[in-house]
Computed example of a mutant assay.
Amino acid sequence: MGNVGLFYVGAVLFLNSFLLLGKIHAKSAAIFNLFIGFMQVVFPILILIEANGDKWLIYNTAGTFLFGFTYLFVGFTNLFQLDSTGVGLYSLWVAIIAVAYSLINFLYFHDIKFGIIWIMWAFLWGLFYVLLGLKKEISIFTGWVTFIESWLTATIPAFLSMIGIWENVSDNLAITIGILFSLIVIILFRKTSNN
């Protein structure tokens, strides 16, 4: 996914976090989800047309579709006030695929930073499965995790990439941030599950 696309993943996650926290109306968030979803589907289609069988370009483009179809599905579900079970079950499938993307980043590309980011996305999609597919009331917890991930997995990495600094971020810093994120998630879960 290109830096601009990743930047706007941060934006839509940021907005969706406020939806989950009950701060904005679902139809309002739906419009932005549709904008970003269309962007993350149309541009990858154009890339695929020019891919000429490049397997890694196709692989990366397929990853972008995971996001695009998620946002389109969320957008239409919220706009038309549909049952969210379909989004939840799709999120389970995407969570499993995101684990595979994480492993490929770790093991094939030796990219620790995006290996961590993909596993964080897998966790978030897993939360969407529990919330929307299984109908467990974890919206506040999921909202806070979405808010944090909007910055850690998308906005900040994309911004640093656009200004040419991302490659200077050390793997050790990424691992430290991943550990801190895990601790914050545990604290958030305990705090929100007691309310």
Rank of each mutant, 00 (worst) to 15 (best):
83 D>T: 08
100 A>R: 11
107 L>V: 12
101 Y>Q: 06
88 G>A: 03
97 I>Q: 11
104 I>S: 14
83 D>C: 02
70 T>G: 06
88 G>C: 00
107 L>N: 11
96 I>K: 02
110 H>T: 12
82 L>D: 07
103 L>M: 15
80 F>T: 07
100 A>T: 15
100 A>F: 13
89 L>H: 13
106 F>Q: 03
90 Y>G: 07
85 T>Q: 09
70 T>P: 01
95 A>Y: 05
85 T>K: 13
84 S>T: 13
97 I>W: 13
82 L>T: 07
94 V>G: 03
87 V>D: 06
106 F>M: 00
86 G>M: 08
103 L>Y: 13
94 V>K: 00
80 F>G: 06
74 V>Q: 12
85 T>C: 09
75 G>F: 01
92 L>N: 10
90 Y>K: 09
81 Q>H: 10
79 L>T: 02
95 A>V: 04
106 F>N: 05
80 F>I: 01
75 G>Q: 03
72 L>P: 00
71 Y>A: 02
77 T>F: 02
80 F>H: 10
81 Q>D: 14
83 D>E: 12
88 G>W: 01
77 T>M: 07
75 G>S: 04
94 V>S: 02
86 G>R: 08
88 G>T: 05
89 L>Y: 15
101 Y>I: 00
72 L>M: 08
86 G>I: 09
77 T>D: 03
69 F>W: 07
79 L>K: 08
101 Y>K: 08
110 H>L: 11
89 L>W: 15
92 L>W: 06
72 L>D: 05
111 D>T: 00
91 S>D: 03
94 V>L: 00
107 L>I: 14
94 V>R: 00
102 S>E: 03
71 Y>I: 01
109 F>H: 12
76 F>Q: 01
91 S>T: 08
96 I>R: 05
101 Y>D: 04
84 S>M: 10
76 F>K: 04
97 I>G: 09
76 F>P: 01
105 N>S: 15
100 A>K: 14
92 L>V: 05
95 A>L: 04
77 T>W: 01
91 S>C: 09
100 A>V: 15
102 S>K: 08
77 T>A: 12
71 Y>E: 00
88 G>E: 01
91 S>N: 10
98 A>L: 11
99 V>K: 03
105 N>E: 14
105 N>W: 05
69 F>K: 07
88 G>S: 04
83 D>Q: 12
100 A>L: 13
100 A>Y: 13
78 N>C: 06
71 Y>M: 00
87 V>E: 07
108 Y>Q: 12
81 Q>S: 15
104 I>R: 12
91 S>P: 04
111 D>M: 00
72 L>C: 05
93 W>R: 14
85 T>I: 11
104 I>M: 09
89 L>K: 10
87 V>Q: 06
110 H>A: 12
69 F>C: 04
78 N>W: 13
77 T>L: 03
84 S>A: 14
83 D>R: 11
85 T>S: 14
84 S>V: 12
76 F>E: 02
104 I>E: 11
92 L>P: 03
99 V>G: 01
70 T>L: 10
96 I>Y: 00
93 W>N: 15
104 I>D: 11
